[in-house]
């Protein structure tokens, strides 16, 4: 249907200017043939049908497209798909385990950390990166870490609470494992 990307089985030759790439997305190896100018967000959304990653601006400001690349939060509209070749990408669809939600997902629901839901995937991915690095952040640390993600609905106060909630739950889980 489109020349920008087409999922193929690895090894298929394609004419220039497309390139074949292999990306591990949410733990699954996936290959695609893409134009070099295709941005990662569009590969995820239109190519891999992972529409949880949203795009909300043209200038790398809004952060709705935030995903983790090799564990680091990245605005996926500001990275070409070819740059993800050989790397690991995690999107919002990869947050939940097979049977249960990630504590951040629970926290956002529990603390009313979302309204229209459009910025939420990016917020949660940025929050995950924060908690991976700093498991018990202060309010200021959360506000700072999320300052590359815009939300128009909530006023952020409940997003901060949601991340706190998740940190508390993750802390409890760690304690359980240690006990």
């Amino acid at each position: 249907m489109t020349s920008l990307f087409r999922e193929v089985t690895p090894g298929t030759a394609e004419e220039i200017p497309v390139r074949e790439i292999t990306v591990t997305v949410n733990g699954q190896r996936r290959s695609a043939v893409v134009e070099p100018r295709l941005v990662l967000a569009h590969l995820l959304r239109q190519g891999f049908k992972l529409t949880g990653t949203h795009t909300g601006c043209d200038t790398s400001n809004c952060g709705a497209c935030t995903v983790l690349v090799d564990g680091r939060p990245v605005k996926s509209c500001t990275m070409f798909a070819v740059q993800a070749d050989g790397h690991e990408v995690m999107t919002v669809e990869g947050l939940a385990g097979p049977s249960e939600l990630h504590p951040l997902q629970e926290g956002f629901k529990e603390e009313h950390g979302l309204q229209c839901g459009f910025c939420t995937p990016g917020m949660m991915m940025a929050s995950k990166a924060l908690l991976d690095e700093n498991p018990s952040p202060t309010e200021d640390e959360i506000r700072w870490a999320l300052s590359g993600n815009l939300c128009r609905c909530t006023g952020y106060q409940n997003i901060v609470k949601a991340v706190m909630w998740a940190a508390g739950k993750l802390d409890g889980e760690t304690a359980e494992v240690q006990a």
Binding site: S60, G63, R72, V74, K75, T78, A126, S147, G148
Partner: peptide
């Protein structure tokens, strides 16, 4: 510089 996510790249 920029914002925390942009600083990652």
């Amino acid at each position: 510089v920029a914002d925390p996510i942009v600083r990652m790249r």
